[in-house]
Simulated scan of single mutants.
Amino acid sequence: MSATPRSSPLGGKHVFVAAVFLLLALWPLVSGAYGADLVAKLMIYAILAVALELLVGSTGLVCFGQAAFFGIGAYAAVLLAPADNAVPSLLVALPLSMLLAALYALAVGALSLRTKGVYFIMVTLAFAQMAYYVIHDTELGGGTDGIYLYVKPVLGLLDLGNAAHLYGFIWFSLLLVFAFLALLLRSPFGRALAGIRVNEQRMRATGFSVYPYKLAAFTISGAISGWAGFLFAIKDGFVSPELLSWHLSAGVLVMIILGGLGHLRGALIGAFAFSLLQELFKSEALLGEAAKHWHLGLGLVVIACVAFMPRGLVGIPHQWRLHAARKRDKHAPDSEEAQA
């Protein structure tokens, strides 16, 4: 089988991503307040999804504790706010939230990366549950009642208390994170991560010390997840222990699988698709009483997608081309008849 040609800088993949970001930028012009708020939430989940894609799809590390870094970033945004209800600075609040999430990711990664396979999954889950119960069972995070954020950060003319400003900042954050990860994965560091994913033993044999690469990827992913958590706390003005629950970690993992592992745009598509499917099956206006059992409908759709689209949503064009090629080969005459 011949190698797949490298896409050009202005190939279809890049055009698709550019179109997605353009549509997201223009969305508030045609939607109401509810539609803009919904898409803002989806963009935050997309940031969290591409952060996990760096680990799962690009490095081969199946992490089941991504919600811990997300929740730490969210709680940091609230707990580090000035006690006298003074207006917090975005230049201080956001970096601190990312730093705390990154430090916890560094500590978790330093220990969990010494394990492999299912043991790595369980260790990351255990650390995430530890963070969850610290928030849930202590007064640090307000317990089960959560904490409210009354004053949103500002930066010059940018006021995150304004819905339009907040939407624009979330959009810009997603664009910046996506561009950063795309460049990172094309760099020698990203190529090393791809080599680790494909064959870690061979990378060691060629002289690479894989542990620092994996730890760096784990820490970067944690910092970006903290960024997403910070945005979520600012958008809702409220945080609760559910932001650190394993359900969120599992949901984000399903997002990147649904979209297609190994592609940043797949994580982007999967985050929007999974979240929109949730909204669809939860809608009592559309499904009536069946909306109470939305988990069943969502689960069946996800199972069907995994069964019939093994490459995820991002692989649909490839499946169409493959089907068309098989159809052409089926109806094409054999070589002897063609020569005759």
Rank of each mutant, 00 (worst) to 15 (best):
D159Y: 08
P5H: 01
G297T: 06
A81T: 07
S335I: 11
A128S: 14
R186N: 15
S2L: 09
V50Y: 02
F16R: 05
L287Y: 05
H263A: 14
P310M: 00
F189T: 10
G156S: 11
M43G: 00
T59D: 00
F69N: 13
L157G: 09
A267Q: 06
I303S: 10
G65W: 14
K152P: 01
V198Y: 07
Y75P: 11
K235S: 14
F70C: 05
L26T: 05
K13N: 15
S249M: 09
H318D: 15
W27H: 00
L243A: 07
R265Y: 05
G251E: 12
R321T: 13
L29M: 04
G117W: 13
S335H: 10
I135D: 08
A217G: 09
F169D: 04
T4Y: 07
A325S: 14
C305L: 15
L160W: 03
D236R: 08
W171R: 01
F238E: 03
L26A: 04
E336P: 07
F169G: 00
N199D: 15
M309D: 12
M130G: 09
A76S: 15
R202S: 11
K282A: 02
L91N: 08
P5T: 01
M1L: 09
R197A: 03
L38M: 07
L113E: 13
G117V: 08
Y119Q: 07
G73W: 10
H263Q: 11
R202V: 12
L54I: 07
A67Y: 13
A291C: 12
L298F: 11
G262N: 15
F172D: 02
T219M: 00
L24M: 14
G229Q: 08
M98T: 06
V210E: 09
V301S: 10
F308N: 02
G312K: 10
L80Q: 11
L94G: 00
T206W: 05
V177Y: 02
H293Q: 13
S173N: 03
F69E: 13
G260F: 08
A194M: 00
